[in-house]
């Protein structure tokens, strides 16, 4: 067979380079929607919680964030939010930044910056949770 003896509809080179979709082509598309759906209740909860704690002092706010379920929901919010943001900005960069080197560089810089922000936020929530 011309295709290196395999029965797949993909070239050997395409397989080696992991090009093309082997049922994973929609992973990012789905990820964007699943995180969006998760963010619907999580952001409603977060905005209402912030409104309810207007005027609270640092200790009161920290106590709120450190309660087990609040900390869990904050972590869930941060995971869904940063995943959603990374996927969204990736599409924007892929649309507007041309040239492979510039595109790859911008994507990596964006992901690195988001990863650091995300880890800092996660660490802060864990610290609040374990301090209580």
């Amino acid at each position: 067979m011309a295709n290196g003896g395999n029965m797949m509809m993909r070239s050997t080179l395409g397989r080696v380079r992991a090009l093309g979709a082997a049922r994973h082509g929609l992973a990012d598309w789905w990820g964007q929607r699943v995180t969006a759906a998760a963010l619907v209740p999580l952001s409603v909860w977060f905005v209402i919680s912030l409104l309810a704690h207007r005027g609270a002092d640092a200790a009161g706010m920290a106590r709120w964030a450190g309660r087990p379920w609040n900390a869990v929901l904050l972590l869930a919010l941060l995971i869904a939010l940063f995943q959603h943001l990374a996927l969204g900005l990736q599409v924007v960069i892929e649309d507007y930044v041309h040239g492979e080197a510039a595109k790859l560089g911008t994507l990596l810089a964006m992901k690195a910056a988001l990863a650091l922000l995300w880890l800092a936020a996660i660490l802060a929530v864990l610290k609040l949770a374990f301090a209580g």
């Binding site: 002092d57 640092a58 802060a124």
Partner: peptide, 29 residues
């Protein structure tokens, strides 16, 4: 798309707020 990008910059404030909250009364103030 525009609001999504703008909200992306807002995460910097969210992270600053959480880190300050974990950092104590002075940072939070």
């Amino acid at each position: 798309r525009g609001s999504g990008i703008w909200l992306g910059f807002g995460t910097i404030l969210l992270v600053w707020w959480l880190v300050a909250l974990a950092g104590g009364a002075g940072a939070f103030a």
